[in-house]
């Protein structure tokens, strides 16, 4: 059995009448990149806050590296980047980082050494300009996010927890974040992040857990999850028009469960017992000018829609049938 970086057993949390998380269990192996997926309001942030023990679950237990998360020394091995980011505006960048490092038990000297390293790596310290001496509110938004990210990683945590890390990042910073996540994994660290952007999760994650309305919908490795839901998905691209004719075929619910028009192609989920060949046949009969017809594994996005859409959570959110 692989060693677990994080194990959650049956945690629940309610705020008055509202149940944010309902007996959630999951396990994250050491060294994995783990995605916590779900629509807004699914309970991702609440779950993460319980993991790092800033709110206590009503019931259930959480262990980090085999030790309860109420143990301060196990929490010191965690780096956390909250969804809503912010730092002391009037404080010097270097002092903020030193403070954050010291709070995790880092010595001042060691903290300073690492701050230099990271600042250079994120080009916040160059030959011309050392942003470390500036105050936080003198930095651009992108720079502030870098500083915050450094603060998360300064004490070289074994487990890195990022709450919606991609939100608000421009493509360059998003790429830098992705590279850092990959690098962390190479160094044997465990990365857990939440997101509602399935593309990111699909590219980065070894394993995922989808939660909706405080309940776990599914979890497992990304290939495993895909295999489980794969087989009956078709990507269809048409050359030119003929969409009306095709639409009649695709709206036959005996055969087609769901169609997602992605503009350049349709992503079609067939009913379990439907035969893709029969669909191809009927499309040709309908006179469709087919450019692409391919049996594909569903994207996480598709699985997410299927699973979360099926439970009826926030239909409007997904924007699809």
């Amino acid at each position: 059995m692989t060693e677990l970086a994080l194990e959650i057993r049956g945690i629940s949390k309610s705020y008055g009448e509202y149940q944010a998380v309902h007996s959630l269990s999951l396990a994250v192996p050491k060294g994995a990149v783990y995605g916590l997926l779900g629509p807004n309001g699914a309970g991702k942030t609440t779950t993460i806050r319980m993991i790092i023990n800033i709110i206590a679950p009503d019931e259930g237990t959480i262990t980090l590296m085999g030790r309860p998360n109420t143990d301060q020394s196990s929490l010191d091995r965690v780096g956390y980047l909250p969804e809503e980011r912010g730092l002391y505006k009037k404080m010097q960048v270097r002092r903020v980082l030193r403070f954050l490092g010291q709070l995790k038990g880092l010595g001042a000297k060691e903290a300073d050494r690492r701050i230099d390293e990271w600042m250079e790596r994120f080009s916040l310290k160059t030959a011309e300009k050392d942003w470390g001496l500036a105050k936080i509110d003198e930095l651009s938004r992108g720079m502030q996010q870098k500083v915050q990210f450094i603060g998360t990683l300064l004490h070289d945590p074994d487990i890195v927890i990022l709450d919606e890390p991609f939100s608000g990042l421009d493509p360059i910073n998003a790429q830098a974040l992705k590279d850092t996540v990959v690098d962390l994994k190479k160094r044997g660290k465990t990365v857990i992040f939440s997101t509602h952007l399935m593309d990111n999760a699909e590219r980065l994650c070894d394993s995922v857990c989808i939660i909706a309305r405080g309940n776990k919908v599914l979890d497992g490795t990304v290939p495993g999850v895909k295999a489980e839901h794969g087989g009956n998905n078709v990507a269809l691209a048409l050359a030119g028009g003929g969409a009306e004719l095709v639409n009649r075929v695709l709206s036959d619910h005996k055969m087609v469960e769901r169609v997602d028009d992605s503009n350049r192609f349709f992503e079609i989920s067939l009913q379990k017992d439907a035969d893709p060949q029969a669909l191809l046949h009927r499309l040709i009969e309908a006179g469709a000018n087919i450019q692409r017809f391919e049996l594909v594994q569903p994207s996480l996005h598709q699985i997410f829609l299927e699973k979360v859409g099926a439970t009826g959570v926030e239909v409007g959110m997904t924007g699809h049938g």
Binding site: L81, P82, G86, L87, Y88
Partner: peptide, 14 residues
């Protein structure tokens, strides 16, 4: 200030 800048959440993780 700590609450509004959200820095509180980072600190409370430590």
């Amino acid at each position: 200030e700590e609450k509004m800048t959200r820095v509180a959440e980072v600190i409370m993780a430590s």
